[in-house]
Structure formats: structure tokens, C-alpha cells
Computed example of a mutant assay.
Amino acid sequence: MPKPRYVLADKGYDTNAVVAQVEQLGAEVVIPSQKSRLCCRLIDRVRYRQRNRVERFFGRLKNFPRLATRYEKTAVSFLGFVHFFAALCWCGLLSVRPSPC
């Protein structure tokens, strides 16, 4: 598995232990500092905003019972449906929420 270049997380992960472990991996820490920190860390705001896209995508995944409960029997067909869902999201074809089953 390739080494990560960046680790993006929210303020809840701003601990000395987490930051030290990320730096030990050789990755850049993109975690905003908590208000209680005496020395605030500068972060790349553009990269941090990209984290929101990933969180919204997983939030949308949870709205689809077929993906949330994993109806597919094999991992390959499940991954195929996730790719299909991601393509629909990318094209903007999923603007409405699905009806509950």
C-alpha cells in the first residue's frame, strides 16, 4: 500500500499523538488546531475543504438502502454498484433523495 501524502481530519483528531504518528509516516498533517492549543498549526485550507466532499459522498451512500445494508452477494458486484452510484453523483444525476424501501 502506498504511503499517504496528506492526512485530512477534523479538530477532534488534533492530538499530539495523532500528529506525531502522521508525521512519522512522512505525510502532511491537514488537521485544524483546537481552540485550546497554545500554538496553532497552519493548514492547507484548499485541501481541508476537499474533505467535505468525501463526507458528503458517504452521507449520500447511507441514503441508499441497497448500499447501506449491502444487498449484493459478492464484493465485486457491490463495488460495481458503488462505482455506478459515484458516477451518477459525479454527473449530477442524483439531486433527489431515493424513496425508502
Rank of each mutant, 00 (worst) to 15 (best):
Q34V: 11
Q34D: 07
Q34P: 07
Q34S: 12
K35S: 08
K35F: 04
K35W: 05
S36H: 06
S36F: 06
S36E: 13
R37C: 14
L38E: 13
L38S: 15
L38W: 02
C39F: 11
C39V: 09
C40Y: 01
C40A: 07
R41G: 05
R41E: 02
R41T: 05
L42P: 07
L42Q: 15
L42D: 13
L42I: 14
I43Y: 00
D44H: 08
D44S: 11
D44C: 12
D44E: 10
D44T: 10
D44K: 09
R45L: 13
R45M: 08
V46G: 06
V46K: 14
V46Q: 14
R47V: 09
R47F: 03
R47H: 08
R47Y: 05
R47P: 01
R49D: 09
R49W: 02
R49K: 15
Q50F: 14
Q50A: 13
Q50C: 06
Q50V: 07
R51S: 03
R51K: 14
R51A: 05
R51C: 06
R51L: 11
R51Y: 04
N52W: 15
N52D: 14
R53P: 04
R53Q: 13
R53N: 13
R53V: 15
R53H: 10
V54W: 03
E55Q: 07
E55D: 04
R56N: 12
R56K: 09
R56Q: 07
F57N: 04
F58E: 05
F58P: 01
F58I: 09
F58G: 08
G59S: 14
L61C: 05
L61S: 01
K62A: 03
K62V: 00
K62N: 06
F64Y: 03
F64C: 02
F64M: 02
F64T: 00
F64N: 00
F64P: 00
P65T: 11
P65W: 06
P65Y: 09
P65M: 10
R66Y: 02
R66E: 04
L67R: 01
L67Y: 09
L67P: 00
L67H: 01
A68H: 05
A68Q: 06
A68K: 00
T69Y: 05
R70Y: 04
R70Q: 05
R70W: 03
R70E: 03
R70L: 04
R70V: 01
Y71H: 14
E72L: 05
E72Q: 11
E72K: 07
K73V: 13
K73M: 12
K73T: 11
K73N: 13
T74H: 03
T74A: 09
T74Y: 07
T74V: 05
A75R: 12
A75G: 09
A75K: 11
V76K: 11
V76P: 01
V76I: 05
V76N: 10
V76Y: 06
S77E: 11
S77K: 12
S77P: 02
F78S: 07
F78C: 07
F78G: 08
L79K: 13
L79Y: 12
L79H: 13
L79V: 11
L79Q: 15
G80T: 13
G80E: 02
G80V: 04
F81M: 04
F81V: 01
F81S: 00
F81Q: 01
V82A: 06
V82S: 01
V82D: 00
V82Q: 02
V82M: 03
V82T: 10
H83V: 13
F84A: 15
F84G: 10
F85P: 01
F85S: 00
F85M: 01
A86H: 00
A87Y: 13
A87V: 15
A87I: 14
